[in-house]
């Protein structure tokens, strides 16, 4: 059975993409980033997320392939996306389907209090 962890910006499936469909697979993971375009993505930001995904999956080597462990990777990745947003590497897409600011409202921050 295909396992998955799907949150708004990070979809992880135990499947591969073939002919625009997800085909369940036991030894592959497919990551999909922000399908609903809440953020404006740049190539660099995407590469950083993929690299972080690689790191997390490598760190999870040897553990059971269950929903729980996938969710753990997924939620760590969501935190990473949030960091990118706070640093300004990605930004909220003002033309997205619904502007929810789901990772915090834009705000002006003094440099000292940052982080």
């Amino acid at each position: 059975m295909m396992l998955k962890s799907t949150t708004r910006h990070v979809h992880i499936y135990t499947a591969i993409v073939a002919n625009n469909e997800l085909v369940p697979s036991d030894d592959k993971l497919t990551l999909d980033i922000d399908p609903d375009n809440e953020f404006n993505w740049s190539e660099d930001a995407l590469k950083a997320v993929y690299a972080e995904f690689d790191r997390l999956v490598d760190a999870a080597a040897g553990e059971d392939l269950t929903d729980y462990n996938l969710r753990r990777i997924g939620s760590d990745l969501e935190h990473f996306v949030r960091q990118l947003l706070q640093q300004g590497a990605i930004s909220y897409n003002l033309k997205s389907r619904a502007l929810n600011y789901s990772m915090g409202l834009p705000r002006v921050e003094a440099e000292e209090s940052a982080g």
């Binding site: 993409v17 030894d27 993971l29 999909d32 080597a61 040897g62 392939l65 269950t66 929903d67 997205s96």
Partner: peptide, 26 residues
């Protein structure tokens, strides 16, 4: 005119993994 902006965009990234395949727990 704004319909195109609400379509989904997939940014797929595929890789193999070393997690242990176990029978379904749920």
């Amino acid at each position: 005119q704004d319909r195109a902006y609400t379509l989904q965009t997939h940014r797929f990234y595929e890789r193999s993994h070393d997690l242990k395949v176990v029978p379904p727990i749920l």
